[in-house]
Design a binder for these strands. Structure first.
Length: 551
RNA sequence: GCGCCCGUAGCUCAAUGGAUAGAGCAUCAGACUUCGGAUCUGAGGGUUGGGGGUUCGAGUCCCUCCGGGCGCGCCA
C-alpha cells in the first residue's frame, strides 16, 4: 500500500502534477469507521501546505497516478482528502495463511536487531514484602520486556537491591528485627521509634530463632546488627523472589547496591565525574554539576562526613550497566521518584554516556480501597497490602491483566473487597474463555474426524461472512499492535487488543458454525479458528497470562 | 512557590495529530433443540474541566486558569 502510494507520488511528480521538493513520509492505517474501506492514507493532507491546494484536489491527483494492483478492489477520495482503499478479500486469506505458517512467531519483528536492552524494575527495598504498588511496576516491566524481546531486542530483566550497609532504613530495619527476636525470647521490649511494625518481621525472627538458636542477640552491638541485617535481607529477598515468581516475574539479575560500594565502583564513578569536570567540592561536600545537564540544582554526591549519597551509587550503577554492554537502559520507577529523573540523566550524561539511550518510565500510584475507603499504606506501620495478598485473592492471571488494563501514566484504583467479586467478571476471563472455547471446538471437531488442514492447501475464499472478515482483520492487527506497544512503551494496549480479538471471535462463533457445514467451509473455518487460537495464545503469552484449554 | 501525572458516558478507563470520541461495568429490553450462556443482539446515556492559540484537521501539541494526586533532603 505504501509502495503503491510512493509510486503514485513519484509518477505525479515526474508528470509535473505535484511540484514538491521531497516526498512526505507515507502512513497508511485502518480507518476507525469500516465504511471507509480497509486502509486509509492521509498523504494528501500532508501536502496541503506546500501545494497550497485543498487536500481533496491533491488526493485526486495522486489517485490519478496510482498503479493497478490485483489486491486493491476500490480506491476512493473522501471529501476531506483521505485516500481510502478497499481490498479484495483475498488479502485477508493471505493473513490467515501467514499466521499458520509463522505460528508462535506471528507478531514478532526484528527491528531491535539484537541490540541489548536492560529493563530495571520493581527494585523494592529489602526491608519489606512486595506490595501491590510494586506489582504494578512488575507487570509493566515484565510485559514491556516481553514486548521488546518480541520486536527483536535482547533483554535483561534486572532488580536493583537497595542493600547499602549505611542506609538508615536498613539500620532501623535490623534493630526492629532484633527487638522481634528478643520478644520471642520473652523480653518485654517495644519497637524503636523508627521501627518496622510489619508482622513479616515476626515471621523472620521466628525462622531465625528456629534455625540459628537463641544466642544471636548476644555480643557486640554492631556485630549483632550486621548479623540480623544480613539475615533479614536474605530472608526478605527470598520472599520477594518467591512472590514475584508466583506473579510470573523472574529476573535475570539481582543487582546489589552494596556491591557497588565494596568493589570501589562508587568511588571510581565519583573520580571520573571529577576528572570530567562535572563534580566539584563545596561546603566540605562533593557536588554533581547536574544543572549543566538540565537539572534544577546541583546534587550532593559525597556528604561532608565522607559518605556517598544515593545518587552517587546510582551514577555508578548506570555506568556499570552501560559498561556491561547494554545499548539501552530503561528504568521503571514509581511516581515518588519522578524528581530523580533529571539528576540521574545528568549523571549518565556527565559520565559520557548517551542520555537519549537512558529512559525512565514512571507509573502512577496504586490507590488501595477497602469497601470504598482509601487505605493509607506504610511499610513501617506494617499495614501494607502485599502482592501476595492480591495473588491469593484473585490469582496471577487476573492480577496481571488488571494491572495492565490502564495506561502506566494513569492512577490505578484497586478495591480489595471488590477484587474477588470483580474477578468473576474480569475481562481476563472473557479472553481466556475465547481461547478455551476454541480448544473445545477443535476437540469436538477432532472427535468427528476433523483436523486443522494446512492453509496452503485449503480454499479460504469461502470465508466471506461479515463476522469472518471482521475477525480476520483483527487477527491482521497483531504485528502492528506489538510494534506500537513496544515502541510507545504501552503494554496496556495488549489487554485491549486481546479483548477485541475475543470479541471478534465470540461474534463469529455466534453467526458461523464450523462443524456441520459443507466440508470445504468447515475446512476453511477450522483454519480460521485455529489462527484465532494462535493469535490469542501469542498475545496472552506476551501478557504473561495463561491461555487455558479448559476453564 | 517549582516539577511530574491526571481531569473523557452514572462508575472505571481507551483512543501512533485524523473522518461519526470508543470499550467494560452498571441500567433497561431481547436471543440457545445445534461446535462451551464465563456467550451474543439492541437501547439509553458526552459542550473530552473552562478559555485562548498552532494546524487542512486537536481529547491528543502550546499558553493560561480551575480542580485532584504525588514529589521537591548532605534520606533511600
Amino acid at each position: 500500500m505504501v509502495a503503491l502510494l510512493e509510486q503514485a507520488l513519484q509518477r505525479a511528480r515526474d508528470a509535473g502534477d505535484l511540484p514538491i521538493t521531497h516526498l512526505p513520509e507515507i502512513s497508511v492505517e485502518p480507518p476507525r469507521v469500516k465504511e471507509f474501506g480497509d486502509f486509509a492514507s492521509n498523504v494528501a493532507m500532508l501536502l496541503t501546505r506546500e501545494m497550497r491546494r485543498p487536500p481533496r484536489e491533491i488526493a485526486d491527483l495522486i489517485v490519478k497516478h496510482l498503479p493497478e494492483d490485483a489486491l486493491v478492489s476500490k480506491v476512493e477520495v473522501a471529501g476531506n482528502g483521505f485516500i481510502n482503499f478497499t481490498l479484495h478479500p483475498d488479502w485477508l486469506h493471505e493473513v490467515v495463511r501467514d499466521i499458520q505458517t509463522k505460528g508462535d512467531a506471528y507478531g514478532r519483528w526484528d527491528v531491535g536487531k539484537g541490540e541489548r536492552v536492560n529493563v530495571e524494575f520493581v527494585s523494592a527495598n529489602p526491608n519489606g514484602p512486595i506490595t501491590v504498588a510494586h506489582g504494578r511496576g512488575g507487570a509493566i516491566g515484565d510485559v514491556l520486556a516481553n514486548l521488546l524481546e518480541a520486536v527483536g531486542y535482547q533483554v535483561t530483566r534486572e532488580f536493583y537491591v537497595n542493600d547499602a550497609t549505611n542506609s538508615l532504613q536498613m539500620q532501623h530495619f535490623a534493630r526492629s528485627l532484633v527487638v522481634r527476636y528478643r520478644q520471642l525470647l520473652g523480653e518485654d521490649i517495644g519497637l524503636p521509634e523508627d521501627g518496622y511494625a510489619g508482622e513479616y518481621l515476626v515471621d523472620i525472627a521466628r525462622e531465625l530463632l528456629e534455625r540459628e538458636g537463641a544466642h544471636l542477640a548476644e555480643g557486640d552491638e554492631t556485630e549483632v546488627l550486621n548479623r540480623f541485617r544480613n539475615y533479614a535481607e536474605e530472608a526478605m529477598k527470598r520472599q520477594q523472589q518467591a512472590d514475584l515468581a508466583d506473579f510470573g516475574v523472574v529476573f535475570d539479575v539481582w543487582f546489589s547496591e552494596n556491591s557497588l560500594h565494596t568493589s570501589g565502583q562508587v568511588d571510581a564513578a565519583i573520580r571520573e565525574l571529577k576528572e570530567r569536570g562535572h563534580a566539584y567540592e563545596h561546603d566540605g561536600a562533593v557536588w554533581l554539576r547536574s544543572t549543566v545537564f538540565g537539572d534544577d540544582k546541583d546534587r550532593v554526591l559525597v556528604r561532608n562526613n565522607g559518605q556517598p549519597t544515593y545518587i552517587a551509587a546510582d551514577a555508578a550503577y548506570h555506568r556499570n550497566k552501560f559498561e556491561r554492554g547494554f545499548d539501552y537502559l530503561i528504568d521503571i520507577w514509581g511516581p515518588d521518584h519522578h524528581g530523580y529523573i533529571a539528576r540521574t540523566r545528568a549523571a549518565v550524561a556527565a559520565l559520557g554516556y548517551p542520555a537519549e539511550n537512558f529512559e525512565v518510565l514512571i507509573y502512577q500510584i496504586v490507590r488501595l480501597f477497602k469497601g470504598g475507603d482509601l487505605v493509607r499504606m506504610s511499610k513501617r506501620a506494617g499495614n501494607v497490602v502485599t502482592l501476595r495478598d492480591v495473588l491469593d485473592e484473585v490469582g496471577k492471571d487476573a492480577a496481571r491483566f488488571f494491572f495492565l488494563m490502564r495506561s502506566h501514566e494513569s492512577p490505578l484504583d484497586f478495591d480489595l473487597e471488590l477484587a474477588k467479586k470483580e474477578s468473576s467478571e474480569n475481562p481476563v476471563y472473557y479472553v481466556q474463555y475465547a481461547h478455551a472455547r476454541i480448544c473445545s471446538m477443535l476437540r469436538v471437531a477432532g472427535e468427528q474426524g476433523w483436523t486443522v488442514p494446512a492453509a496452503r492447501e485449503t480454499d479460504l475464499s469461502v470465508l466471506r461472512e461479515e463476522a469472518e472478515l471482521v475477525l480476520m482483520k483483527k487477527l491482521d492487527e497483531l504485528p502492528e499492535e506489538v510494534l506500537v506497544a513496544a515502541t510507545e512503551r504501552a503494554p496496556h494496549r495488549l489487554t485491549r487488543y486481546s479483548m477485541e480479538v475475543a470479541d471478534a471471535f465470540h461474534k463469529f462463533y455466534d453467526t458461523c458454525r464450523v462443524v456441520g457445514e459443507e466440508a470445504p467451509l468447515t475446512r476453511a473455518r477450522l483454519v480460521l479458528v485455529d489462527a484465532t487460537r494462535l493469535v490469542l495464545k501469542n498475545v496472552l503469552t506476551l501478557l504473561g497470562v495463561s491461555a487455558p484449554e479448559r476453564m
